[in-house]
């Protein structure tokens, strides 16, 4: 079923919406949650929470990109669950991925300067649009979906070292880009 049809089901308050969403996007959502939680039971609970959140959100929203809408909710719920879990259960891959982003932080004097997340999202999106499709996919798969570098190497037919280098270069470029934007 096409995404607009699934969204229509939500608007009609038909419970088939959940069934169709589950049939089409369960794998993707579980991938997002598993990357963060590394615990199938936790991930499935997050999945149920996600379906409930989507059910509540549509209507009044009509997402243009349903998979992104789902993943965003799933990711937020999973990250919250991750925060609540004990430290030893935290997924080192997520921590590692977030640590890598340190290199992107511009070296401004005012380190406390607050940035509006939406505006920053717009700037980062703009940066990513200037990259090759494959590069930005890899970037987001690493820092948005928290995919391990080994998985990226496998999925994109590259060596792990090549993935590391690509991400290293992109982090440097993002830092420069953010500095040019005055951040």
């Amino acid at each position: 079923m096409d995404d607009p049809e699934i969204i229509d089901l939500y608007w009609e308050r038909s419970e088939d919406a959940i069934t169709e969403t589950d049939a089409k996007y369960k794998g993707l959502c579980m991938h997002v949650a598993n990357n963060i939680l590394h615990d199938r039971q936790d991930a499935e609970e997050c999945l149920n929470d996600t379906y409930l959140a989507v059910w509540k959100a549509i209507p009044s929203k009509r997402p243009k990109y349903l998979p992104a809408f789902l993943c965003r909710i799933m990711r937020n719920i999973a990250l919250k669950r991750c925060e609540h879990n004990s430290a030893k259960k935290r997924n080192p891959e997520v921590m590692l991925s977030l640590d890598e982003l340190d290199e992107c932080i511009p070296s401004t004097e005012d380190v406390e300067a607050a940035c509006d997340a939406a505006e920053l999202g717009r700037i980062i999106s703009s940066f990513l649009r200037q990259q090759h499709k494959r590069s930005r996919m890899i970037f987001l798969r690493r820092y948005w979906y928290f995919d391990p570098q080994s998985k990226l190497a496998e999925d994109f037919g590259m060596t792990e070292n090549a993935v590391k280098q690509l991400l290293f270069r992109m982090r440097g470029q993002l830092k420069e880009y953010l500095e040019k934007e005055g951040l």
Partner: peptide
């Protein structure tokens, strides 16, 4: 900021 990246890019990466 990365969380707030545009939806179409997130969907593309998926």
């Amino acid at each position: 900021g990365i969380d707030a990246v545009d939806d179409d890019l997130i969907a593309e990466a998926a």
